[in-house]
Design a protein around this nucleic acid. Sequence first.
DNA 1: ACCTGAACACCGTTCAAGT
DNA 2: ACCTGAACACCGTTCAAGT
Lengths: 200, 200
Amino acid sequence: MTPMPQSRPYHHGDLRAALLTSAERTLREKGAAALSLRELARDIGVSHAAPGRHFKDKQALLDALALSGFDRLNRSLASAAVPDAPLETRVTALARAYLTFTIENPELLELMYARKHDPDIDSRLADAVELSMGSFVRLVAEAQQRGEIVEGDPEHLTLVAASAVHGLATLVANGALPAAEALAGLDEHVHLLLHGLKPR
Amino acid sequence: MTPMPQSRPYHHGDLRAALLTSAERTLREKGAAALSLRELARDIGVSHAAPGRHFKDKQALLDALALSGFDRLNRSLASAAVPDAPLETRVTALARAYLTFTIENPELLELMYARKHDPDIDSRLADAVELSMGSFVRLVAEAQQRGEIVEGDPEHLTLVAASAVHGLATLVANGALPAAEALAGLDEHVHLLLHGLKPR
DNA sequence: ACCTGAACACCGTTCAAGT
DNA sequence: ACCTGAACACCGTTCAAGT
């Protein structure tokens, strides 16, 4: 019998997607610092120069990961919306979606918000950030129309809510706050955000 | 005339401190990714193996930078305290100190909160985080005694305030939010935190 | 169009040896 | 005690050449 051709085909098929998938697993399992293009190529079974065909450099691959992270986050936020519920329920649902994504993808969230220094990339990521803020903006704007939220610049009101949620998420992402604790306190957290720390 | 001995002395004097100083400048000017031990050694004028005498590896140097960052942040927070002022003034002062530190040291703040994966280091840094939270904890506890803050677990109340401020700071640190905008909106931000987003 | 293999200029880390 | 110089095993990136 002639042996089966063990060697990989010359073409991979979809190397770009394979690189992203593999990179995200490494990111999750070993962290961003441990991510090497050469190791990725080795794992996939392709030459070390092959990734260069699909990503102009390592940063380009990281950027692609970050952008796909925002995609999934934004979808998750969109599908967490509960249009006809009371304000507090709606904010809590959004906050829980954000926090859940963070707990499931802590390293990815760090990468998504990592400083890039490249104005071109930064602007694309800024758009993505804006998009995820969008869910909060819409919520605030609607609530404001119903008189359920204080008057004032809606962008700024949104920033208060969003930075509170984002702050909680980053503390969980970098291990400063246990995920369980953040989840357990979330309802109360949102309640305090809406009602204030001062007694009424 | 015999030429002046141009070559550096065999001993540097305080290589450890020189490495930290130089590393922090690189961090500020070129970012954490551009930080190389060999380049640091070159800049200081010492062999590439010399840093190994003072830091067991690159991560150890980064950890030292992070810890000294927390030191300065904590000192800055402590000196920003205004004990005999109204609650809102006190919280604003603390928040402003945190935000100012972040604006002046964006890359350092990222490093301070970066995931480390080493339980030993993480626990030392966790202590440092706890310490900076301390300023907020004390403020909340006192205010609570005076009845200026809602009843409830002070740790949790602190977390709400701290994560709101930290969230704002990280957004500024990674360029998602212009520093000027964050500073300009800070008073209002704190006001909303204390009074809530819902109308009273 | 897509990939390889060799080459280049870097890294971090270790370790005998020097002062 | 502190540092050097060489060595080792890695990197990312580029580029002619192969399929």
